[in-house]
Computed example of a mutant assay.
Amino acid sequence: MTHRQKHHRRHIGRVLGVVAALGAGLVAAPAPAGATSHTVRPGESIQAAVDAAAPGDTVVVGPGLYRESVQISKRLTLRGSGPATVLTPAPARPLAAHGCERDGNGICVTGTEQTAAEQVTIRSLTLRGFRKNGLWASHTDRLSVRQVTAEANGVWGIAQQRSTRASFRANTVRENGDAGIFIANAVDAEGGATDTGGTVIAENTLTANRIGVTVRRVRNLAVRGNEIFANCAGMFIVGDESKPTAGAMTVRDNTIRENNRLCAATPRLPAIQGSGIVLTGSEASVIRNNTIRDNKGSAPMSGGIVLFESLVGAANTDNVIENNEVKGNSTADLVHRGGGSGNRFAGNVCTSSEPAGMC
């Protein structure tokens, strides 16, 4: 090979190397960031960071105590640093910063009837001691609440109305005045059950609330894999005479035990104690593969799995209660009161029922 040929080959090799490097750089270079992360530290305002965030951004809140409520109405992620990121009520002041604070809630995720608040994620923080609710959501779609501790709030720990396709997973909800997790069609209006679009309540721990989980006048959701104990009642599925009827949901693989606190009667409910799962006015729900043990009381709705006529006289119809382990509950493991047709009990492991013969 001549000197000219060798030089030409080296030149071609260098050109190819540069092209390859440029090509590799084009592949490896990250795409321009479409979202921004905003960091909040103790002494700074979470709300200010939320207000400054663009849709799709993430607000990261460091460990510490934050005395404020937060209002969210756009697509974003609010992420704490674990249970040590704590939100508590703001000091009393004549003018609240926004409606969420004024109403006594911790975090509010709210859209409108015309435009839902979409794809909001709340995770890894604690909501403690709010006068009303730890987290309140209304007019949302695909809300995700994960690894949140909601404790010692006046009404509900985590609550949602007029919303679809939500996911509530791996939360710890305790010592709230009413339900730990509450899902409803609407809290301020009567009406038929609404379709939640497949909302999921899964893998949560719910303890020392009035009721662990309440789903009221809604359809099409799943409650699965939760640990529910030491409440006055484990779970309520609530309907009435309105149409569509509440129900068409699946409740499976939950452990519901020792919900034996005594809670006094309210204008909506009699006294409750020792209730595992209570269905009132439900249609076509499936209660399957749950472990329901040692829920004991003498209140009207005491028992393991209880079908009970609603307060307005609506019966349960076409529900399936099968393959549950229901033991040590009183007044009985399985209770079917208030009439209704098409309800089926099959394959349950239990020792007592009312009427007799369902075990």
Rank of each mutant, 00 (worst) to 15 (best):
A20P: 01
L76R: 06
S69W: 00
S73E: 15
I72L: 08
A53Y: 02
P42C: 08
A92Y: 12
A20F: 04
V60K: 11
V40Q: 03
V59C: 05
T88F: 07
Q47N: 04
A49M: 07
V60Y: 11
P55K: 05
A90P: 11
S37H: 10
L16S: 08
S73T: 14
L76Y: 07
H98R: 03
R93I: 12
T77W: 07
R79G: 09
T39S: 11
A21S: 13
A20C: 09
A20N: 00
P83V: 01
A21K: 06
G99R: 10
I46Y: 01
R41Q: 14
A84Y: 12
I72R: 10
L22M: 08
L87Y: 05
V50R: 12
E44V: 00
P91R: 10
I46V: 05
K74L: 06
T58S: 05
A35D: 07
A24S: 13
G56Q: 02
V60H: 13
T39L: 11
T85M: 01
G43Y: 07
L22W: 05
Q71M: 13
R41W: 08
I12T: 10
A24F: 15
A96R: 15
A35M: 06
A53I: 05
L22N: 06
L78V: 02
P91V: 13
H98K: 02
V70Y: 01
P32W: 15
G82E: 05
A29H: 13
L65C: 04
P63V: 07
G56V: 01
A48G: 09
L22V: 04
A48F: 06
V70K: 01
S69P: 04
R93P: 07
P89I: 10
V59T: 04
I46H: 02
P32D: 14
L22T: 06
L87W: 05
G13D: 14
T77S: 03
V19M: 12
V18K: 10
V18S: 13
I72K: 09
V15T: 14
L26V: 14
R14F: 15
E68G: 03
E44G: 14
T77L: 05
S45R: 09
P63E: 15
A28F: 14
V86W: 01
I46C: 03
P91A: 14
V27R: 10
T85I: 01
S69R: 02
A48Y: 06
A52H: 14
T85K: 00
G43M: 12
Y66F: 08
R41N: 13
A33Y: 09
V61D: 01
Q47I: 08
V40P: 00
P30Y: 07
V18N: 11
A52V: 09
S45W: 06
L16N: 04
L78F: 03
A28C: 09
V27H: 09
P89H: 07
A97L: 09
V27D: 05
L65V: 13
V70E: 02
Q71P: 07
L22R: 07
A35S: 11
G17P: 10
R75D: 15
